[in-house]
Design a protein around this nucleic acid. Sequence first.
DNA 1: TACCGCAGAGAAAGCCCTTTCCCGCAGGGA
DNA 2: TCCCTGCGGGAAAGGGCTTTCTCTGCGGTA
Lengths: 357, 357
Amino acid sequence: MATLSDVARRAGVSPATASRVINGSSKPVTDELRERVLAAVAELQYVPNAHAQLLARSHRSAVGVIVHDVSDPYFAEITRGLQRVATDQGRLLMICNSYRDPDRELEYVELLRGHQVAALILAGSGYHDEAFTRQLNEKLAAYEATGGRVAVIGRHEHSGDAVMPDNRAGGYLAGRELCGLGHRAIGVVAGPRILTTTTDRLAGLRQALSEQGRDLPERRIRYAEFDRDGGAEATARLLDADPELTAIAALNDSMAIGALATLRARSLAVPQQVSVVGFDDMPIARDVTPALTTVRLPLVDMGVRAMSLVLGAGAPIPRVEVLPAELVRRDTTGPVPHSARASAGSVPRARRGDAAP
Amino acid sequence: MATLSDVARRAGVSPATASRVINGSSKPVTDELRERVLAAVAELQYVPNAHAQLLARSHRSAVGVIVHDVSDPYFAEITRGLQRVATDQGRLLMICNSYRDPDRELEYVELLRGHQVAALILAGSGYHDEAFTRQLNEKLAAYEATGGRVAVIGRHEHSGDAVMPDNRAGGYLAGRELCGLGHRAIGVVAGPRILTTTTDRLAGLRQALSEQGRDLPERRIRYAEFDRDGGAEATARLLDADPELTAIAALNDSMAIGALATLRARSLAVPQQVSVVGFDDMPIARDVTPALTTVRLPLVDMGVRAMSLVLGAGAPIPRVEVLPAELVRRDTTGPVPHSARASAGSVPRARRGDAAP
DNA sequence: TACCGCAGAGAAAGCCCTTTCCCGCAGGGA
DNA sequence: TCCCTGCGGGAAAGGGCTTTCTCTGCGGTA
């Protein structure tokens, strides 16, 4: 690899001058030397060694991001928002996928710290895990102690800047919608219970039901991976245990799509026999058939806010921005079937299929 | 930030010794000193400066990847494959999204070169663009001249290791399927014509038709962005111009999903009135309704192969691995409607709707 | 006893840049 | 004419780490 001094030698100037030309330094350089340097750069196909540059200028510029998986649409949208602000400010993003593995998350904090990122954004859900949370906070504190900025998206037990989607209110909205349509036998397809996202959404759902004087028994909840297959599987278990279900609340859209697949496989009509509501409103939600009723979260905006927090001036007290959830009615929800309206919970399994199209 | 010499000072050893302990060097260090160093590291929350490390060891380890967009399922799958191999070998991946912007692609080659990556993988489609291709090849050649390894996925005019999905054969499969079902009025929803992926798939399609003695007139092709909205829009234009269409071949699944949306919006039954075939077999293909008939590409495997090529020994001659495409029949394709069978091309627009379910 | 070899630790030389500091020189004011 | 100023350029000092080379002190051999 050609180095800066190769360029300088070739151009017959000092490395200092070459550096000034290449970086457009504020110090003036005569046009003649400038030309010579530029020519040498082109001839040698010189590209500055990024590590040496980063080492030499103590200036931290990149921003680290830890998500569960960028290719998951939920995080893809958030990342789009992060990226937008970062690009505007000429910042490079280093994005790491933790795949929901706490240890990997911890490792990535160190890795990013080692890479001298100016700020760190944790975009995944928080965990209900005492030991992990403590370790994470220690690492973040160490990072912040050296001037690093941190923001989290979602509920983490971290005292600092945060962007919070209103998961609980969203869960409430989903629950109220289902109740309003007359559903009583509601099954919940939930993500891993260790995630705060899961428990918050569940809490909202529970609140909506309890306002109607109902509770949400554990047997009506199935926890699984927060993805399509998890949703399909959880739905199957739910239906096996409770064939009278008239509605399914999935705690994210991927799971809802899995639920839809299981319902289709069992020839249960949506929404005629079973209603389904999702969560997140990821782009594909409108393209499945029937189009998915879901709770929209301003994902892109969440990314924008988080990045703005972290790149803006540090506030004396931690700022928490709560972003509202909103119900999007589409075609997977409908009134509770007539047969179930009269005597919910006692209809034999065979009933399923009566109303098949 | 604590530095290595802070650690060394605290442990009462030289930086050399501290370094050896921290990196598990082959050089032996007495247990007592080792303990002291480790203790100092923990107390100071020391994390090595990655840039300094990378600069000091000339050892290149990371691998650079340029894709159009990681969050696009097509690239997400490929990336999964890349990642798998990279992780096995303890390599870090630097992934850059070019968003199909050639300039950005060029910039990223430089950026990654500057970051001293051991290898570079271009995972996006090639472009039909003389000037761009030349520039790209120049940059890649410069990189390879300094020992960098390069592999491309897809057809690029680059003489080096390559993994080629058999786009042409895939297009042929799609075309043959549609012809076999009796379709004659076939519209094509294509990606940007500047991409080799588009033209290769189109060529295969064309070949299948011509084997049946038909051609594929330009008026039956619409070029748009390679995504859902592009597909929806192209389909609309196609139907406006040619209401007799009985089949639509979309050149990727995202576009196919857009096509499905447009067809639904126009109340055209799939596959009773119009058949649709996609391309790629991305995960969501099986979850749309009706489930999408498509051409499967072994995306994950493509990533695995590319990374293996690049991390394995360099071959004296460029290796090109062609990976086969395969038709996956699902529910969006069916026989040509009866009404169209007799007199294709002359049925009035009003016909649409007759067979609505 | 004199010498050799080796284990374990430190000194110091890079790795490739950026940036401060300094120097020489030309032009302008006194 | 002399001095000061300011401009353009180079020398050199880091930035934080790895690694080679060197040194010390010990045990073992002749």
